[in-house]
Simulated scan of single mutants.
Amino acid sequence: MKYHVDQNGYYGEFGGAYIPEMLYPNVEELRNQYLDITSEASFKEEFESLLRDYVGRPTPLYFAKRLSERYGAKFYLKREDLNHTGAHKVNNTIGQILLAKRLGKQRIIAETGAGQHGVATATVCALMGMQCVVYMGEIDIARQAPNVARMKMLGAEVRPARSGSRTLKDATNEAIRDWINNPVNTHYIIGSAIGPHPYPDMVTRFQSVISEEIQKQLQEKEGRNAPDHIVACIGGGSNAAGAFYHFLDNEQVNIIAVEAAGKGIESGHSAATSALGKKGIIHGCKTLLMQTEDGQITEPYSISAGLDYPGVGPMHAHLYASRRAEFISITDDDAMKAGLELAQLEGIIPAIETAHALAIPEKRPFRKDEIVVINLSGRGDKDLNTYIDHFKL
């Protein structure tokens, strides 16, 4: 179990809970109770029935025939884009809202970049009749307008973050401030495998339904329960954490984490944390972080709002440092090309986040007999304007 979290909330040297004193009671309450609550039979039953009847799980594992013919290996796509709300994010928000209810919270806050986590949070708050406030960077509000409209239609209040780069990092800062000011009645649903312990582990466990299903589905399709390679895009990294979870200790499975290189790793406009990051603390955990010589966080850049983050979750930092995972950085241009290619080869328009993972076959050769599972983490409706502008469609 060397790639999983230890009892102190660390993955190797990464993780922990670096938090202001004001937040200590909230985080302690979660840490002391999340494993007990989530292992209760009534919790599991409610979680599984909502995933099945409301979210629409299991999501298909789809053999991409034309993609496989083009790149000469067996490519399967785990279709998280077919979940209710259009991405993997809802797996975690369902789990966390059930937890919040059992902790007696009445108000939910969240941060969002691409808007998918905001939509998933607003969705479960509507479902459970809870007040919802979503923080979102001003720049992301402009580039993800359809998701902003969805959140408002679902009854959430969307509050713009106007400081710093006005993207995901700043939205997270605002959400943490809110939580400090409203510690008693508010639960903060973090959308990624980041934040103070127990968040990275909690989010990963709720997302691990992805790799659990991949095991069963591959067994049915290929007579084996593990691929040769599992591929996912990472920003904070919740879709990747869920896709990798059940394969972490199986060293036969090669893990490929795909980061956003933006306009190029050395361009000064990138979010390739593994290549550019050093150890540091962000949003309550120790991880790899893009920063200046004197420890100031540098502004990340990616055409994809969901990968535009200066760090990675501590589990991914550990996978990188221990060399358990292969980290590859993909530029905006290569991701956009891969998104268009999937649309025209398989009739599936992916989110631009996911398109980074889909660029891998072009960058890295696979053998003909190898099985490669790519986590198709979200659908591209929210990104149509970006695709249209990029390709002059």
Rank of each mutant, 00 (worst) to 15 (best):
A100S: 11
K78P: 14
T112P: 11
E45A: 12
E80H: 03
K44A: 11
K44S: 12
G15M: 08
F63K: 01
K74C: 00
F47Y: 15
S39V: 07
E21V: 08
A41I: 13
L35V: 12
G129H: 10
V124C: 09
Y24E: 14
G16M: 05
Y18F: 15
L61R: 08
I37K: 08
G129Q: 11
Y34F: 11
K89M: 03
D53W: 05
K89Q: 09
A126D: 15
G118S: 10
K89H: 11
T59G: 05
M128G: 01
S42H: 14
T85Q: 11
A120Q: 07
R52Q: 12
K65V: 14
E40Q: 12
E45G: 07
G12F: 03
K101N: 13
L61Q: 08
E13V: 00
G113S: 07
S39Y: 07
E28Q: 12
S39F: 03
V119Q: 01
Q106L: 02
A120G: 03
E80S: 09
L50H: 09
G113K: 10
L35I: 11
Y18L: 03
Y62C: 07
R52I: 11
L30S: 10
Q33R: 05
T112E: 01
E40L: 09
I94T: 03
T59F: 04
L127R: 05
P58F: 04
L127Y: 15
G104H: 02
A114Q: 14
A41G: 11
N8I: 02
K105E: 05
G129P: 14
L99A: 05
G56K: 04
F47P: 02
S49T: 06
N32I: 10
G56V: 05
A73H: 12
S68Q: 12
T121G: 03
A110D: 06
G113N: 00
S49N: 09
A126F: 10
Q106K: 15
A110F: 14
N26E: 14
Q96S: 03
P58T: 00
F43H: 03
Y54S: 00
L99P: 10
Y10H: 14
G113D: 14
Y62L: 06
R102W: 12
Q96L: 00
G9S: 00
D36N: 06
G12Y: 02
F75M: 04
L82A: 09
C125D: 15
T112W: 06
